[in-house]
Computed example of a mutant assay.
Amino acid sequence: MTKMAGLRPEHFIWEMRGRVALIRLNRPERKNPLTFQSYAELRDCFRALAGATDVDVVVFASNGGNFSSGGDVHDIIGPLVGSPMAVLLAFTRMTGDLVKAMLSCGKPIIAAVDGVAVGAGAILAMAADMRLASPEAKCAFLFTRVGLAGCDMGACAMLPRIIGQGRAAELLYTGRVMTAAEGERWGFWNALHGAESLEAEALALAEQLAAGPVFAHAVTKTQLLQEWDMGLLAAIEAEAQAQAICMQTKDFERAYRAFGARQKPEFPGD
Rank of each mutant, 00 (worst) to 15 (best):
G6V: 14
G6I: 07
R8Q: 14
P9W: 03
I13A: 11
R19P: 05
R24C: 07
L25W: 02
L25R: 03
N26Y: 00
P28M: 04
K31E: 11
K31P: 00
P33K: 03
F36Q: 02
E41N: 06
L42V: 02
F46Q: 00
R47E: 15
A48R: 10
A48M: 08
L49M: 13
T53L: 13
T53W: 09
V55P: 07
V57P: 15
F60T: 05
S62I: 06
G65A: 03
G65S: 02
N66F: 01
G70H: 04
G71Y: 05
I76C: 09
I77F: 12
P79L: 04
G82F: 12
P84F: 08
A90T: 12
T92G: 09
R93V: 13
R93S: 10
T95E: 14
L103N: 11
P108A: 02
P108F: 01
D114L: 09
G115H: 10
V118T: 04
G121Q: 06
A122Q: 04
A125S: 06
M126E: 10
A127F: 05
A127L: 01
D129H: 14
M130G: 08
R131H: 02
P135M: 09
P135E: 02
E136K: 12
E136A: 10
A137G: 11
K138D: 06
C139V: 15
L142C: 10
F143M: 04
F143H: 03
G147A: 12
G154H: 02
G154T: 02
G154Y: 00
A157W: 04
G164K: 01
G164W: 03
G166E: 11
A169G: 02
A169R: 11
R176C: 10
R176T: 00
V177T: 14
M178A: 12
A180T: 11
E182Y: 00
R185Q: 10
A191S: 13
G194R: 15
A195M: 08
S197W: 11
L198P: 04
E199S: 07
P213W: 00
V214K: 07
A218E: 13
V219I: 15
K221Y: 03
T222H: 11
L224R: 13
L232Q: 12
A234G: 08
E239H: 10
E239K: 09
Q243K: 15
C246P: 00
T249Q: 05
T249E: 07
E253I: 09
E253W: 12
A261Q: 05
R262H: 14
Q263V: 08
K264A: 14
K264W: 14
P265E: 05
D270V: 09
